[in-house]
C-alpha cells in the first residue's frame, strides 16, 4: 500500500516506461545532475548576474562611487539614484556595484588562495606522512582552535588594517579547513591499488600525489572553495561593518553597511543599508546553492 500521490507518480512513470519513452541517458553524469538541480541553476544564474554587474560596473552606472555631493545628501531612491544617496551624497548603487568588486575579490580570492595552499600542503603531507605531516597537522590545529573572528581581529590589531592584510589574514585563518580535507582524502586515496601500481612503476612522489591522486579529490575541493568563499564574504562584511575590515575609504559591501550602526540611519534611511545587505545575502546564497549542487553532483553515493 502506497500513498495516493506516490501512486499517481508511479503510474505516470510506468506508462512512460511501457511506451518506451525512457532511455538510458548519456553525457557527463555530474554536469547533468548539476543542471537537474534547480537550486544550483538558480544559484549559478544569480552568481553570474551579481558578478557581471560588479565587474562591468562602469557600463551600468555613470556615477562615481567616491564622489561626495553635499547638495545631494541622504536622498531616497529616485530615477537618478536608483538606490538613493548616502550621508555624503554618494550614489549608493554605484557604491554597491564597485563595492562588489572588492568584496568578491576578497572572498573569492582568499577562498582560492587558501584552497591552493591548503591543498598543496595537505595533499603532499597526507601522502608522504612522517614528521612533516605531524607538524602541519599541529599547526592547523593551532589555527583552528581559535574562533575565526577572534583570530582575524587579533591579527588585524597586530598587523593593521588594509585590503592586502585582510586577505593575508583570511588565508592564514582559512587554509586549515582545506588542508584537513585534502589530507583526509589523501589518506584514504593513497591506499588504493592504482597508487601502489604507480609506486611500483617508480613514479616520483609529487607526480603521483599531484597528478594522479589529486584529481580524484577535485569534487570535494570545489565544494570547499565555494563554502570558504561564502564564509569569507560574510566575514569581510562583518569586519567592515564593525569598521575593522577593509579601510573605510574603499567601498565594500561591509563598509557600506557600516552606516547602519547608527540607529538614525537604521530607522530613517533604509536605502543606505537594506539593499546592500540583501545583495550580500543573495550572493552568499547563490554561492551556497552552487556548492550544494556541486556536492550532490560529485558525490557518487548520492542518487538523484
Amino acid at each position: 500500500m502506497v500513498s495516493r500521490s506516490l501512486n499517481k507518480k508511479f503510474d505516470k512513470i510506468l506508462a512512460r516506461e511501457e511506451a518506451g519513452n525512457l532511455t538510458s541517458k548519456t553525457g557527463n553524469r555530474s554536469l547533468r545532475k548539476m543542471m537537474n538541480n534547480r537550486l544550483a541553476v538558480v544559484g549559478l544564474i544569480l552568481f553570474s548576474i551579481i558578478l557581471f554587474t560588479a565587474v562591468f560596473a562602469p557600463l551600468i552606472t555613470s556615477a562615481d562611487p567616491m564622489k561626495i555631493n553635499l547638495r545631494n545628501m541622504s536622498q531616497p531612491p529616485s530615477w537618478e539614484h536608483w538606490f538613493g544617496t548616502d550621508k555624503t551624497g554618494r550614489d549608493v548603487l554605484a557604491r554597491v556595484l564597485y563595492g562588489g568588486r572588492v568584496s568578491i575579490l576578497v572572498g573569492l580570492g582568499s577562498g582560492i588562495i587558501s584552497a591552493i595552499i591548503g591543498v598543496l600542503i595537505g595533499a603532499y603531507t597526507g601522502y608522504k606522512g612522517g614528521w612533516l605531516d605531524v607538524i602541519a597537522l599541529r599547526v592547523s590545529e593551532l589555527f583552528m582552535s581559535f574562533p575565526q573572528i577572534i583570530l582575524v581581529l587579533l591579527l588585524v590589531s597586530i598587523i593593521g588594517q588594509s585590503l592586502i592584510n585582510l586577505m593575508i589574514i583570511f588565508v592564514l585563518t582559512g587554509w586549515g579547513g582545506m588542508y584537513r580535507m585534502a589530507r583526509a582524502r589523501m589518506l584514504s586515496l593513497r591506499e588504493e591499488e592504482y597508487v601502489q601500481a604507480l609506486q611500483s612503476f617508480g613514479l616520483s612522489t609529487p607526480v603521483i600525489c599531484y597528478k594522479h591522486i589529486l584529481p580524484n579529490a577535485l569534487g570535494p575541493i570545489m565544494v570547499n572553495i565555494t563554502l570558504s568563499t561564502a564564509a569569507f564574504i560574510l566575514a569581510e562584511a562583518g569586519l567592515s561593518f564593525l569598521g575593522l575590515g577593509v579601510p573605510a575609504h574603499i567601498p565594500t559591501w561591509g563598509n557600506i553597511l557600516n552606516v547602519a550602526q547608527e540607529i538614525r540611519v537604521l530607522q530613517n534611511y533604509w536605502w543606505m543599508w537594506l539593499p546592500v545587505g540583501a545583495i550580500i545575502s543573495l550572493f552568499v546564497l547563490s554561492v551556497n546553492f552552487i556548492g550544494d549542487g556541486l556536492r550532490d553532483a560529485t558525490d557518487p553515493s548520492q542518487q538523484g
Partner: peptide, 9 residues
C-alpha cells in the same frame, strides 16, 4: 514489485 527510482521504472 516495481521500483520507481531516478524517474525510471
Amino acid at each position: 514489485t516495481y521500483f520507481y527510482t531516478n524517474n525510471r521504472c
